[in-house]
Structure formats: C-alpha cells, structure tokens
C-alpha cells in the first residue's frame, strides 16, 4: 500500500488528475488534502501534469510509512511500497 498526500491548492490539481489516470490508483479526501493511494506503486508523469518546476518539486505534503519516493525528477514522481 502506498499513500501520498497532496495539498488541495490550484497548482497541484493536475498532479492529482494525472495520478488517477492509473486505474489502480484511488483518490480520496482528508480535509484539505488529496489522499492518493494504491496497492502497488504510484507513478505520475511530470510532463502530463504541466507543472512548473517549483510546483512539481514541492507538491508532496506527505508519504505514508508503507511507501517511499524512489523517483522525483524532471520526468516523473514514483512512490513504491516499502
């Protein structure tokens, strides 16, 4: 299980919409956060999000302890189960 929290601000919306294009990924809400989760990895393509660099590299509010970021670069964000 991997869980990723993303704060609900306008700049981050495309991160969430791109994440849920994967049918294995679900998105819920916890207060002002989007809670993105999956049994396996979560992979988000940077170009698909159209995020500027500063937004892309600061879009993550939290990663549950059962997941770990294994890639966060100009191409993609990837969170793998531990």
């Amino acid at each position: 299980m991997t869980t990723l929290f993303v704060l609900d601000v306008p700049e981050n919306i495309s991160v969430v919409t791109v994440a849920v294009e994967d049918p294995a990924v679900t998105v819920g809400r916890r207060g002002h956060y989007h809670e993105i989760s999956a049994d396996g990895p979560i992979v988000i393509d940077r170009r698909a999000t159209g995020c500027r660099h500063a937004v892309w590299y600061s879009c993550i509010a939290g990663v549950g302890r059962d997941g770990r970021i294994t890639q966060h670069d100009k191409n993609a964000l990837r969170v793998d189960p531990v």
Binding site: T3, F5, R29, R30, G31, H32, Y33, I60, A61, G62, V63, G64, R65, R68, I69
Partner: peptide, 18 residues
C-alpha cells in the same frame, strides 16, 4: 526529506478530520 514527508503523513492522519 523522506523522514519529514513520512512524519508529516502521520500528522495529517492524526490531526486532519476525514
């Protein structure tokens, strides 16, 4: 940074109502 994001996820779960 990884430890911070993990701790922050815990605080979100503890403090932010669903």
């Amino acid at each position: 940074f990884g430890k911070l994001l993990a701790r922050k996820a815990e605080l979100i779960v503890e403090r932010v109502p669903v």
